[in-house]
Amino acid sequence: MSDISNKETTVPLLAARGLVKEHGRTRALRGVSLELGAGEILAVTGASGSGKSTLLHCLAGIVRPDEGSVAYAGKRLDQLPEKQLSELRRTDFGVVFQFGQLIPELTAVDNVALPLLLAGTPRLQARARAGEWLERFGVRGQEEQRPGEMSGGQAQRVSLARALVTGPKVVFADEPTGALDSLASEQVMAALVHTARESGTAVLLITHDAQIAAYADREVTLKDGVVVSEADASAGSLEVSR
């Protein structure tokens, strides 16, 4: 929590200014500015179609905004060539989607080891580290199973392990519990938040579910492509006393 209190004084890890992004004729983002501090867990909420996912894609350097800037650790992501962006996504960022981020033909442990292999880690070492991460997320004993052979909750915890195995600075999670029941959601979220706090990883969490957003330190709400409210714990209590 100390990260939030001094976020005004330190340079944010990730900062977006005036983001605009159009998909065909629809404007998904219409001037969004946002900051994410190191180690901060930020929830972005809003109804479906409010531009949450597009915002995540811009912030993670997956798509380029039409206007505005995204700065990560002093680098302008919107101006970086694709090759460097791809490398940054591999080393400094982790992504968790609702589904699809696991390769169906790869076993759980190989899926988690893949980012390490891409970074040039030898196979055995990569598999050993992947195994440790799977154990941390409570999916030990299922290393050799493929994603299709697991429950949704287990597959999602494998995805978390894959996102976190490289020790990223930021994890981008787009509706990570969207396809899960409430108990599995709780386990996935607890694992994510616990690990992020332990390792000081910042998390940008996209959700439309208030109970999931409540895992974050702070919440930003989007509506029709603009930020309509920002609230953290202190702002909330201020409004109550008024």
């Binding site: 894609h57 940054l88 996504r89 591999r90 989607f97 699809g100 891409l118």
Partner: peptide, 16 residues
């Protein structure tokens, strides 16, 4: 293509 797009988003290079 959806699964592959997720891989690209996660930083797996097109080359691989």
């Amino acid at each position: 293509r959806r699964g592959l797009a997720a891989q690209v988003a996660a930083g797996v290079p097109y080359k691989v």
